[in-house]
């Protein structure tokens, strides 16, 4: 990263901090959504982008994280600041179980991806039958009062949620940037590029892959807790569904897998695209269910076909934010 990039980042940061002062509630909700996907995408990117382990079941961690925190809050009155720890612990345990089984039994690539889907689906059906969380009927939090801020229970106006997810997304960016420059970052990339060679250079690949899974699932669990308290309602059918996993990973893939800013850029592009299409269709007066998603799919197809490495690497070079060689 060069000076130009640093200055741009600084300006962006200030703009994001001041956003609630100018934005109406619609814009604020869009920005919150973008930051949510940027955060969750960053979490997925740790596992796939850095370490090369393709997970298609990250909805598992969003769902379990959300349900644990929400369940504790609804049934036992335990606020999210305590609940998040249990959510994280449980998701890390789940992630490590999947990782342990897969890595020990030599399951990789497509098979690993399918194993992650299988666990997410398994859990979805499990929650459909779990009465403590309301089963398929869903689990509901009391909607927050818009004018009072209750930090302890994480209830308040939209701007509070905005700042919370902004802090999370920024924290994730800082964490990932640090990780990438640390020993873990080097080891993960080596494993991603060639696992056999990495191991011959003294890397205990099993242990470092497990670390990537643990960090990724922990971050995604936090995203799940945020989801629960922001949206106030949880249904297994929605939160564990494979389309939720796909939503999470679209951002990093569109933005650029393995890059730091890819997940953020991808989240912006996808959210703006989805909302833009909705607005456009509403303006034209077309109301056919599904037409929005068709457009969405077509644009997605175009991006994947013509920008195989994602938008960020190309954009960053065009804007002069990275040096031409070694440009990552």
């Amino acid at each position: 990263m060069n000076r130009r990039a640093l200055v741009s980042l600084l300006i962006l940061g200030v703009a994001l901090l001041l956003l609630p002062l100018f934005a109406n509630s619609y814009l604020l909700s869009v920005a919150t959504l973008i930051l949510f996907f940027a955060f969750a995408g960053q979490a997925w990117n740790v596992m796939m982008g850095f370490c090369g382990q393709l997970s298609l079941g990250h909805s598992l961690y969003v769902g379990v994280g959300a349900y644990v925190a929400a369940g504790l809050f609804v049934h036992l009155g335990i606020g999210p600041w305590a609940g998040v720890w249990l959510a994280v612990a449980l998701c890390v345990a789940l992630g490590c179980t999947i990782g342990f089984l897969a890595f020990r039994f030599g399951i990789s690539g497509v098979y690993f991806a399918l194993l992650t889907i299988a666990f997410a689906e398994f859990t979805r059906i499990g929650f459909d039958h779990l009465q403590w969380t309301g089963g398929p009927g869903g689990l509901f939090l009391k909607v927050a009062q818009r004018d009072t801020i209750d930090i302890a229970n994480f209830r308040g106006p939209p701007a509070m949620y905005y700042y919370a997810i902004l802090a999370l997304a920024a924290g994730a960016l800082a964490l990932c940037s640090w990780l990438l420059k640390s020993r873990a970052g080097f080891y993960w990339q080596a494993i991603r590029e060639n696992e056999e060679a990495a191991q011959a250079l003294g890397i205990n690949t099993f242990r470092w892959k497990m670390l990537a899974v643990a960090i990724s699932s922990a971050m995604t669990a936090v995203a799940g807790v945020f989801y629960a308290f922001y949206y106030n309602n949880l249904f297994p059918e929605q939160i564990f569904h494979i389309s939720r996993s796909i939503e999470i990973i679209l951002g990093p893939i569109i933005g650029g897998v393995g890059t730091l800013f890819g997940p953020i850029l991808g989240a912006v592009v996808l959210t703006v695209l989805a909302d833009g299409i909705t607005e456009l269709l509403a303006a034209v007066g077309v109301e056919v269910p599904g037409i929005k998603q068709v457009f969405y799919g077509i644009v997605l197809l175009m991006v994947i076909m013509f920008l195989p490495n994602g938008i960020w690497p190309t954009l960053a070079r065009k804007l002069g934010l990275v040096h031409a060689e070694g440009g990552k």
């Binding site: 640390s182 080097f186 080891y187 080596a190 590029e193 060639n194 060679a197 250079l201 003294g202 990552k328």
Partner: peptide, 28 residues
Amino acid sequence: TYQVVKPFPEMTVEENVVVGALNRAPTV
């Protein structure tokens, strides 16, 4: 070394060797 070379293609030459050096080096 491997007969059929196994570099880390998307990493720079320096980064490739840093991975090896981390075997004994305490810091990056």
